[in-house]
């Protein structure tokens, strides 16, 4: 098991390295005159050359990548070209906002999708039909459109929720929770509809396995079969579904934060992208990849623990 974890951790680090290199080269090769962009059209050629030297842009690309990598490993991700704020600082203040929402939404999705999916699989009937139709509707409406609809109807027209969520935790947990509820709902709708349907299929697949029939023939009760055997075997598939949703949500949350004017990673990423503020873009990509790798590692470990073939060896 320890070897298994070490192996997965190693491959995660390789992915981190490859993605950082690819992103770095992609960003710096293709963007035109960076210094010219920063200084504006009025800048003289000398000023541009000076700025390029200052930013290290006159160095060969490969050298610059390894310089960035060495800095990054010591926790220094460079500074924004426009605000001069260290990227690591910006990330540190914004990651908690984003991750709070993502985790709140994921926990709710995991709970609701699993509950609805399992009931639909076991009971079938109308719950099952609702899940099927819900999945089609959820697939048809992108998450950010749901966010826009929620704000328009619930916040602006009915006035039930605040339209923006810039309220910080210091202004009292009630107000904060209240202001966070709409963005979290906007994040989780697609996750619940899609997740419930996929978990339903995963559970049905397990319910149809031969050993379930044999367990019934041995006089084991339906409840015990479901909770001890079926859900356990369906868990890896369910976890994979949820981890893919979490990865997708790291993108979706960017738009949701923009809609609700939340001071998370979203506005930072959008502003940096619009200005081609490459150190910040690099920082955003690195944060995303690290979260993805950690999530995948956790899923691998749980699945490994559930699967005796991995656990024993």
């Amino acid at each position: 098991m320890i070897r298994f974890i070490a192996k997965r951790l190693g491959s995660g680090l390789v992915v981190l390295f490859v993605v950082s290199a690819l992103t770095f080269f992609l960003l710096y090769i293709s963007s035109g005159s960076i210094a010219r962009n920063i200084l504006g059209d009025q800048a003289t050629a000398e000023q541009v050359a000076m700025k390029e030297h200052e930013l290290g842009l006159d160095q060969p690309l490969v050298l610059r990548y390894f310089a960035w990598l060495a800095d990054a490993l010591s926790g220094n991700l460079g500074a924004s070209w426009f605000t001069s704020e260290p990227v690591a600082n910006s990330l540190a203040t914004r990651i908690p906002v984003t991750m709070t929402m993502v985790f709140a939404a994921m926990i709710l999705i995991a709970f609701c999708a699993a509950l609805i999916g399992v009931i639909a699989a076991v009971r079938r009937g109308w719950v099952d039909r609702v899940v099927q139709v819900g999945a089609i509707i959820g697939d048809s409406i992108p998450g950010f459109v749901i966010g826009v609809i929620l704000v328009t109807v619930l916040a602006i027209q009915l006035g039930l929720f605040p339209a923006t969520s810039t309220i910080s935790p210091e202004s009292g947990p009630d107000a904060w929770l209240y202001s966070m509820s709409l963005p979290v709902i906007a994040l989780l709708v697609n996750g619940v509809t899609g997740g419930a349907q996929q978990i339903r299929s995963a559970v049905i697949k397990q319910l149809e396995r031969d050993y379930v029939r044999t367990l019934r023939s041995r006089g084991i009760g339906e409840r015990e079969i479901l909770f001890k055997h079926v859900l356990r075997s369906a868990a890896p598939a369910g976890l994979t579904v949820l981890s893919l949703q979490l990865i997708g949500m790291l993108g979706g949350v960017v738009i949701i934060e923009q809609i609700f004017a939340l001071p998370g990673m979203g506005p930072l990423a959008v502003a940096a992208t619009g200005q081609s503020d490459l150190p910040v873009v690099m920082g955003v990509v690195m944060y995303t990849v690290v979260v993805v790798i950690v999530v995948n590692l956790l899923v691998d470990i749980i699945n490994g623990w559930l699967n005796p073939k991995v656990r024993v060896s």
């Binding site: 738009i255 081609s276 503020d277």
Partner: peptide, 14 residues
């Protein structure tokens, strides 16, 4: 393992 929107933001920046 890459979220689509983040990749598209990177492509847009580049």
């Amino acid at each position: 393992s890459l979220p689509g929107l983040i990749v598209l933001l990177t492509i847009r920046a580049a």
